[in-house]
Write a protein that binds this DNA or RNA. Structure first.
Lengths: 197, 197
DNA sequence: TCCTTCGTGAGAGTGCTCTCTCATGACGAT
DNA sequence: ATCGTCATGAGAGAGCACTCTCACGAAGGA
C-alpha cells in the first residue's frame, strides 16, 4: 500500500475490477454455469457494482477469457517455423477449440446472450480472427481475394460454434469434434492454396 | 363440425395446438421477437396452456418452423436431375440459409435457449442433416468414411450458426453470408470428391 | 476539520424461461 | 339432467439479464 498511494480511489476501482474478473475467470475455469449473480457473489461484490464495471455479462466474459488467452503469437509458437499454411491453420483451429472446450460453459453463456442481440456481438473476443490472421500472415494471396474468402470460410470451422454444432447436433465427442473441425479447416486451406499454385 | 364429432375433446385440443403453432409461425415470419408470452397472447391462450402443449420454446419453434418447411425432397427438386454433388450441396446450403434468414429471429431464439442446455438440442429440427443427406444420397463413398466426414464438415457450413457467424462476427451482409457459406460448402464437397476419383 | 464527491450496497422493477398449484367451467358420459 | 373429468386460466415463484433509484459511508480536497 506504500508504493502507489497516488490515487487511492483509482486503486480501489482497480481492485474491484480485478476481483470481478478473477471471480469470473475462476467460475469459467471450474466449468460451473457463469451468471452475473454468481460472479458477483464470488467476487464479494453486489450485482449492481458488477454491472457498473461491465455493461453486460458478455463484456465480462470477454475480459475474463482474454485474460487467460495467451495471444495468437504465443499460441502459434509451436508452428512458428512452419511455412505450410495447412499445418498452421490446423494447429490454430485445434488450439482455439481446445480453449473453447476448457471454458465451455462460459462460451455457451456468451453465445446465448449475443445471439439474440447481434448488435452486441462486437463485445465478443474474436479470437478466431487474430488466430487465423496470424496463421495465414506469412502467405501471399494465391489469387486475388482468395485469402479473404478463405478467412471467412475458416471462421465457420475455427470457432466455438463449430465445436457446439459438432458435439450438440452431430453428437460427436469433444475429441472427435475438435478433430473434425481441424480437418475441415485444413481441407479449406488446402483447397484455397491448391486452386492456383 | 359435423364430420369428425368423434371426440370433441380431442378436437378442442387439436384446435388449441394449431392456434399456438399458427401464432408462433406468424410471429416467426413477421420477424418479431418470438417469446412464449407473445405467442400465447397472439394465440389467445394462457402461457400455462402453451407450456402444456410444448415443454419449452424450442419445441414450439421447431414445430412451427417444420410446418413451413417444404421437406428435403421438395427443396432439392430444382437440382433433382443433377448428378454433380457440388452443385447439389451448394443449392441445399443456399436453400437452408435463405430459410434461416427468413426466420432469423425465431432461429436466434432457438439457438439461444439450446446453446445453454445442450441436452435439449435434440429438440432442434436438424433440417441441415436431412438436406445434406438428400443432396448426397445419389453418391457412393469416394473413399471409406469420406462421406461421413464430409457430412460433418458440411454441418459447419450448412447451418444457422454459419449464417450468424458470417453476419454477426464477420460483418457480412446477409446476401454475402449466404454466398460465402454456399461457396464453403461447395469447396468442402469438391475436395471430398476430388480426393479419390 | 468539515464537506463534497463518488464507489458501493440494497432493493425494486421489467421481461424472459419455466414449474407448480388451485379454481373454474365446459364438455362427455351416464 | 346430473355428475365427474379434463382443458384451461390465473397467479405465484424461482432464477436469469438487465435498469434505476436511493441511501450509506469512506476517501479526497478545502
Amino acid at each position: 500500500m506504500e508504493a502507489e498511494t497516488a490515487t487511492g480511489r483509482a486503486n480501489q476501482k482497480a481492485r474491484t475490477r480485478k476481483a470481478i474478473v478473477d471471480a469470473c475467470r475462476d467460475l469459467a475455469r471450474s466449468g460451473a454455469e457463469v451468471t452475473m449473480p454468481r460472479v458477483a457473489k464470488a467476487a464479494l461484490v453486489s450485482e449492481a457494482t458488477a454491472y457498473r464495471y461491465f455493461p453486460d455479462l458478455t463484456s465480462l466474459l470477454r475480459e475474463a477469457l482474454v485474460a487467460v488467452w495467451p495471444g495468437p503469437e504465443q499460441a502459434l509458437a509451436p508452428v512458428a517455423a512452419s511455412s505450410d499454411p495447412v499445418e498452421r491453420v490446423a494447429f490454430a483451429t485445434g488450439y482455439l477449440l481446445r480453449h473453447v472446450r476448457a471454458h465451455e460453459a462460459a462460451v455457451r453463456a456468451m453465445i446465448s446472450t449475443t445471439i439474440t442481440a447481434p448488435a452486441r456481438s462486437g463485445a465478443r473476443p474474436g479470437m478466431r480472427f487474430a488466430l487465423i490472421d496470424r496463421a495465414l500472415a506469412p502467405f501471399a494471396d494465391p489469387s486475388p481475394g482468395a485469402l479473404a474468402r478463405l478467412k471467412h470460410s475458416l471462421a465457420l470451422a475455427c470457432g466455438a460454434e463449430a465445436f457446439f454444432v459438432l458435439t450438440d447436433l452431430c453428437g460427436l465427442s469433444p475429441d472427435d469434434a475438435v478433430a473434425t473441425a481441424v480437418e475441415t479447416a485444413a481441407t479449406l486451406t488446402r483447397a484455397a492454396f491448391a486452386a492456383q499454385t
